[in-house]
Simulated scan of single mutants.
Amino acid sequence: MTKYKEIIRLTGLGFSQHKIMASCGVAQKTVVKVQKRARELNLTWPLDESMTDTELQKIMFSKESSVSPNKRMPDYAYIRKELLRNGVSKKLLWTEYMEDCRANGDEPLMYSQFCYHIQQDEQKRRATMHINRKLGEQVEVGYAW
């Protein structure tokens, strides 16, 4: 687990990012991200004694909703139907979706989020089931003599 409390403490004491990286055993990108988020939330050292790294993670990087509520979600039924047609791709559907959102004054999803939500919808509707079996538990041999 990332040592959020330690990163904030060392930052408050004026240590360089390099020393914080070495001390906490994390990448520079992690240190920069934690420092930036702590500045945004006005978290400075000293922190509350009872504050744990888990609580800090929830406060700083909660993943309650990755999509802002003012973004319009795609029409999954229409997308499923259109993807069955020849020559139709997700990129083409996203372009149509973007144009429709802009025409209606809605905020659209970017392409990666658009594809992610389509994939999540596909996962809900998938009708396959993986059956775990031990090796050699069930053997089918068919010989044509």
Rank of each mutant, 00 (worst) to 15 (best):
K36Q: 15
D75I: 05
T2C: 06
E82Y: 04
T95D: 05
W145S: 08
I20G: 02
K3H: 12
K81E: 12
N86Q: 09
T2G: 01
K71G: 03
S50Q: 11
I131R: 09
E140P: 00
E96Y: 10
I131L: 15
I59A: 06
K19Q: 11
K5Y: 02
M129T: 12
I79F: 01
E140A: 07
T52F: 10
H18Q: 13
V34Y: 04
H117W: 15
A22E: 15
T2P: 03
D53I: 02
F15I: 02
L56V: 05
A38W: 02
N132C: 07
C101K: 08
F61Q: 08
I8Q: 01
Y111H: 09
L10N: 03
N104C: 15
R126I: 15
E96L: 09
H130E: 14
P69W: 06
K5M: 03
K63D: 11
T30K: 04
M51Y: 03
D75L: 04
N70R: 03
T30D: 07
D75M: 00
E64R: 11
R37H: 05
L93V: 07
Y97W: 05
K3N: 10
V139P: 01
H18I: 12
N104Y: 09
K58N: 11
D106N: 15
D100R: 13
L13D: 04
E64F: 04
K29N: 14
T54F: 11
L10P: 00
M1A: 03
K33A: 15
H117Q: 15
V139M: 10
R125T: 11
K33I: 06
Q17F: 02
A127F: 10
G136R: 00
I8H: 02
L84D: 09
A27N: 14
R72T: 09
A27G: 13
D48Y: 01
E40K: 07
Q113M: 15
E99M: 06
K29E: 15
S65H: 04
S89R: 06
L84C: 09
R85G: 02
G87W: 06
P108M: 13
A127P: 00
S66Q: 02
F15M: 06
I20M: 08
P69F: 07
E122Y: 12
L56G: 04
D75C: 00
K91M: 12
Q17M: 08
E6Y: 03
P74K: 01
W94L: 09
K71F: 02
R102N: 13
E82V: 05
E107P: 00
N132P: 10
Q35I: 14
Y76F: 15
E64N: 07
E140Y: 13
A22V: 14
I20E: 05
M98K: 14
W94E: 06
L84W: 01
E55I: 13
L13T: 07
K81L: 11
E107R: 10
T44K: 08
